[in-house]
């Protein structure tokens, strides 16, 4: 599949908040409560369309446990977007850790990375421990986009991924990124803005490899 742009996303947050479920819901449109916990990193990808342009999202789903932070940090490199996820039913453990996740992201990702804060498991309203307002407040303070979502019911899942992409796309149009510099987590594909890296990784049908 050819694309105009490829954006690299990274999903971060404490273990068990539903990062992998969010990814699966977005890529496969299903909720699978029974799956293996994430070790290291896992990948997902999906095409979306923004402004009539095909955009490929390549999503990195990371392991959340504290011990793995040092390795998780190496995944930030070249991410255009990050979904920072907490679990609305676990106030103390997951919401309180947001600040340290954010710190990691700010430190190891590029400064223009778009960060979406997601309060997941909003289907479990009866067990809510973090109010929507608290989430909004945190996002506002730290300049993040915010949404509550449910990987189980799929509520706001599309929206979360796509509005992040739309924000990145807007930044491109505003000239925030040098899209030919892949360290911003953006690759230009066919139909995108031609640049030095135009066409690279553009299509599976691309023949052979170049040999420079």
């Amino acid at each position: 599949m050819s694309y105009a742009y490829l954006f690299k996303y990274i999903i971060i947050g404490d273990t068990g908040v539903g990062k992998s479920c969010l990814l699966l819901q977005f890529t496969d449109k299903r909720f699978q409560p029974v799956h293996d916990l994430t070790i290291g990193v896992e990948f997902g990808a999906r095409m979306i369309t923004i402004d009539n342009k095909p955009i490929k999202l390549q999503i990195w789903d990371t392991a959340g446990q504290e011990s793995f932070r040092s390795i998780t940090r190496s995944y930030y490199r070249g991410a255009a977007g990050a979904l920072l996820v907490y679990d609305i039913t676990r106030q103390r453990e997951t919401f309180n850790h947001l600040a340290s996740w954010l710190e990691d992201a700010r430190q190891h990702a590029n400064a223009n990375m778009t960060i979406m804060l997601i309060g997941n498991k909003c289907d479990l309203a009866h067990r809510r421990a973090v109010s929507t307002e608290e989430g909004e407040q945190f996002a506002k303070e730290h300049g993040l986009i915010f949404m509550e979502a449910s990987a189980k019911t799929a509520q706001n899942v599309e929206e979360a991924f796509i509005s992040t992409a739309a924000t990145i796309y807007k930044k491109i149009q505003d000239g925030v990124f040098d899209v030919s510099n892949e360290s911003y987590g953006i690759k230009v594909g066919y139909g995108g803005i031609p640049g030095p890296s135009g066409g690279r990784d553009g299509s599976a049908s691309q023949a052979g490899g170049c040999c420079s």
């Binding site: 273990t15 029974v34 799956h35 293996d36 916990l37």
Partner: peptide
């Protein structure tokens, strides 16, 4: 959390 996500 993890035992229900192990080889299920």
């Amino acid at each position: 959390k993890d035992v229900v996500r192990t080889d299920r």
